[in-house]
Amino acid sequence: MDEQKKRASIDYILAQGLVTPQTTRSRITEMFRTLGPRYIFWDMGYSLLFAALTFALVMALFVVVPYDYRFSAAVAVAPLFFLLINVFAETSERACGLYELKQTCRYTIRQITALRVLCYSVAGAVLTAVVAIIKMETAYEFISMFTLCLAALFVCAALSMSVIRYVRKLWANAVFSAAWVFATAALTLSLGKPWETLLSNTPIIISVAVALIGIAFFVYQISKMLSEVDKYAVA
């Protein structure tokens, strides 16, 4: 090996060593700064509108749910906005014919989706507070219901993200959302009062713990979506 090749090899090895792996946080910050809200939610207007309208309809039904089933209904409704917006956004993204093209860009559509999902989860968390406020009787009941709803939201979000990660099909999101609605409705209808009692008597500390586990699992899924490439063949 001559001197020039040797020097080039040393420079290459040093350059590799000096590159620090990007953390999830720095990646998210960089993407937010580069894209901004306008390009993160580019052409998402109709999806947001449809999700908001559908959720408003669900909330209208939630308001008239009998008092005796308020916890069961709140847990069922809490993640719905998150699920609906994901379904509408993913459908619209795939229908516009640019999905594959965007997957070949510096920021892939999967990474942008991860960023959007993060924003939806924040909006979903705010809406769970609204859900809890609508049906609360006391401050304690608000905290109890809110933490329970947060736990439902983030467990649901984490599961739906793992479904999106491993199943590349468009219908995956819709099927998961339908499964959530079906499962919560089935539990409420089949178990009835015992299910409501179980939820209303769940200690806040348990709800908080489940919510935190859900958040950790959700963030893990998001970070994987942002960093993994080789598992995400889209075609």
């Binding site: 580069t34 894209l35 901004g36 390009y39 580019w42 052409d43 516009c96 014919g97 640019l98 999905y99 093209l101 965007k102 860009c105 510096r106 920021y107 942008i112």
Partner: peptide, 19 residues
């Protein structure tokens, strides 16, 4: 695919950001 309701300039600026 393309965004029917956007101009080519807007579309290219959007993809520039994604790139």
């Amino acid at each position: 695919g393309y965004y029917k309701n956007h101009s080519p300039r807007d579309f290219l600026l959007y993809l520039s950001a994604v790139k």
